[in-house]
Amino acid sequence: MLFGFVIMFISSVFLAFATSIEALWLARALQGIGSACTATAGMGMLAIAYPDDAERGNAMGIALGGWGAGMLVGPVYGGFMYRIGGQMLPYIGLAILSLIGAFLQMISFETCIKKEPHEDKGIFKLLQDFQIVISAGAIAVSIFCIGLVEATLPTWMMDSWDARSLERGAAFLPHMIAYLLSTKIFGLLGHKIGRWLLGLIGLVWISCAIIAYPLASNYIGLILPSASVGFSMGMIDSGMFPYLANVVDIRHAGAYGSVYAIADAAACLGFGLGPYVGGPLVGTLGFRNLLWLTASFPLLYAPTMLLIRKIKEDSPKI
């Protein structure tokens, strides 16, 4: 985690002074590495610190809520700081926050987590476990849908009713607020409801919500589908992230770092493919047809949650 904070500090300084596309590309790549370090290590540490499933789900729900809060505050902070001080100020602020994070990590994270001997089987071994692959796939599919919507919705809003920049930015606020509430609620209840059931309901729900986007004729009409997408995303994340730790507990001897590296890679894959696919296809298919096609992916993936209802010690591999 400390290494990740240091890398994010360096990338923020690069972004503050970058003047070419190459420098921006390098800075963003460093930022992704730093984020991966903190996210993977953070989830792994929570999995170790909270061995009880109910407590673990609650802790991860809080952590995921922090993730959602950052996504909610980030664009507002960036726009405000950019207006005040141009390109440099928001990234200098991020660099300072990274240093504060590193300092807090050093003084608060003591060696209180008991280190038990275990055999980390590595990512490729874990990828042979079909329940890990299915769980990571649910994360990737849901975030793919979000990435595609984020890449195409603002343009559609401008073309459909000449939406202003404030409306285009505010369109994602219900999503983030609902995500915060959902991760908190289902972080607590996931143990009782069943992690697999959260994933199943979340995938079906996100399909229905995506279909509703093109039906909106103004910003008010976007509130319900946006909030529904955020709430369903919270269900999926609150189900799959603790579920992965449970699989590791039972079958993979504490390989938390590797399993959350897989989860983080799945999230990045989904978020990268969404805009990459959505950008070219929206011009060919149109916004409504593209989103209806996209809604079929989580709906078709949802039945795979039935395959991960029970975690067995000798679960069949791929």
Rank of each mutant, 00 (worst) to 15 (best):
L89I: 07
L269F: 14
T38F: 11
A255S: 14
M81K: 10
A216P: 01
R83E: 15
W161G: 05
C145H: 01
A163R: 02
S238Y: 07
I132R: 01
G44P: 01
A267N: 11
L99A: 10
V149W: 00
G286T: 01
V248N: 03
L200W: 04
L299K: 03
I10S: 03
A170Q: 07
L126I: 08
P242S: 08
C268K: 12
I177M: 11
W196C: 09
M305P: 00
I134C: 04
R164C: 11
V282G: 02
A163I: 04
G234K: 02
G42T: 08
V6D: 05
R195H: 15
A212Y: 03
E22R: 12
E110M: 11
L215W: 09
V229G: 01
L153C: 07
C208F: 15
C112D: 15
S232P: 06
L173N: 07
S226K: 03
N218Q: 10
Y82T: 15
A23W: 07
K312S: 14
V133L: 12
D120P: 09
F144N: 00
Y243L: 14
Y50D: 07
R168F: 03
A263E: 08
G234R: 01
K192Q: 12
A170C: 08
L299V: 10
K192G: 12
S238C: 08
L285R: 07
V259Y: 07
D53N: 11
G230T: 03
F3C: 11
V229D: 01
V247P: 01
Q87D: 05
G61W: 00
K115R: 14
A170N: 10
I33F: 10
E55S: 13
C112I: 15
E55V: 05
S207P: 01
A265G: 13
R168P: 02
G85A: 09
N289Q: 12
P298R: 03
Q128V: 09
G230N: 05
E313M: 12
I62T: 10
T38A: 12
I7H: 02
L222F: 07
R164M: 14
W205Y: 10
F186N: 00
A263R: 05
M158S: 14
M106H: 14
A136K: 03
L291A: 06
W25R: 14
A29C: 12
G74L: 10
R288V: 07
S228H: 00
V247F: 02
I143L: 13
A95D: 06
S11W: 02
Q31F: 10
W156H: 13
F14V: 13
K125S: 15
M60S: 07
K192M: 09
P242H: 05
V248K: 01
L269H: 03
G122W: 04
L273G: 06
D264Y: 13
G65T: 10
W161I: 04
W292C: 13
F130S: 12
